[in-house]
């Protein structure tokens, strides 16, 4: 009896502290999002008096109106990013799984040598400058390929896929081979359909990488029409160029624009899609994380 009582008390203390701590961290995680959304609906001229708050002091839709007066600017950036996410994810999945398929084949004599050939690149690199020179040498300045190529392959994903393929019984491939199927056919017709769960998790990671990427754009893209979403947002925050383009398209002088709340509204528009799909993809994501934690 006494023991039970003690346990109830210590569990009670633990539960209370636990919920308070986790509750506080959860709120801290959400507050920047809420502040930004609220900021985007605030009247720009009231900002200097009242600042950004959780609830706007003076509600206003001006920032969004300004964005949608020249929708083609943001639409272009959206277009670049969406095409990039789809092409990058599909091509990446195809190439990564094809590579992993070969590396997992036990009858492929040089599989360990090739595996090390890929893996070594994660240990040592030439650094940013030589890579930059190679990219420039290949004509990547203002080239969409500069956005696509940097994330097409990932050694980490190749290792995860190789581990996944190893869990598929070899007899499946062997019996198909007896029926006269070639290696590529076995990979494309048998292994790929069986790997949809693994592929969709890795695909999520790749898609997220492309969606959030801005670095190659900063290095290689100077043409405003070719900028992906995140880099466009970066420009909105860090250069007058973005504001001038909007001024040109809408005819509103830069000085009269709700410049500060405009930045917040852009942040909301850039982040919105990820937040909207988040509840649906979170589950797969967590599953993929725990798979990735197990070493390949």
């Amino acid at each position: 009896m006494a023991k039970n009582k003690i346990r109830r008390i210590d569990m009670l203390i633990f539960t209370i502290i636990g919920y308070i701590v986790l509750g506080c961290i959860s709120i801290l995680c959400l507050i920047p999002f809420l502040l930004t959304v609220s900021g985007s609906f605030t009247d720009d001229s009231s900002l200097f008096e009242y600042g950004y708050r959780l609830i706007p002091q003076e509600f206003s839709l001006e920032a969004y109106k300004l964005i949608f007066q020249a929708p083609e600017v943001i639409a272009k950036a959206y277009g670049v990013t969406i095409v990039l996410v789809f092409t990058g994810t599909l091509l990446g999945l195809f190439f990564i799984s094809m590579t992993s398929y070969v590396l997992h084949r036990k009858d492929f004599k040089y599989r360990n040598k090739f595996s090390f050939f890929f893996f070594f690149t994660t240990l040592f690199s030439g650094g940013l400058v030589p890579w930059y020179l190679v990219m420039i040498g290949l004509g990547m300045k203002n080239n969409y390929l500069a956005l696509l190529l940097p994330h097409l392959f990932s050694v980490f994903h190749i290792i995860i896929m190789r581990t996944f393929f190893t869990s598929i019984p070899e007899s499946i491939g062997e019996s198909a081979k007896l029926d006269g199927a070639g290696d590529f056919t076995i990979f494309a017709r048998l292994y790929l359909p069986m790997s949809i769960p693994a592929l969709s998790t890795i695909g999520l990671f790749i898609a997220l990488t492309y969606w959030n990427d801005w670095y190659p754009a900063m290095l290689f893209i100077t043409n405003p029409d070719m900028m992906p979403l995140q880099y466009h947002l970066y420009k909105v925050f860090n250069s007058m160029q973005a504001a001038q383009i909007v001024a040109q398209k809408t005819g509103i002088p830069v000085a009269q624009m709700p410049a500060e709340t405009f930045k917040m509204a852009m942040t909301v528009i850039v982040t919105g899609p990820v937040i909207l799909v988040y509840p649906f993809i979170q589950k797969y994501f967590v599953k993929g994380m725990t798979v990735g934690a197990v070493k390949g």
């Binding site: 920047p32 999002f33 502040l35 930004t36 900021g39 950004y52 969606w211 959030n212 990427d213 801005w214 995140q230 880099y231 947002l233 970066y234 925050f237 930045k263 917040m264 942040t267 850039v270 982040t271």
Partner: peptide, 11 residues
């Protein structure tokens, strides 16, 4: 993205 985090920090 870190770009968005950067905008949060600025705000």
């Amino acid at each position: 993205s870190w770009v968005v985090v950067g905008s949060f920090v600025f705000g």
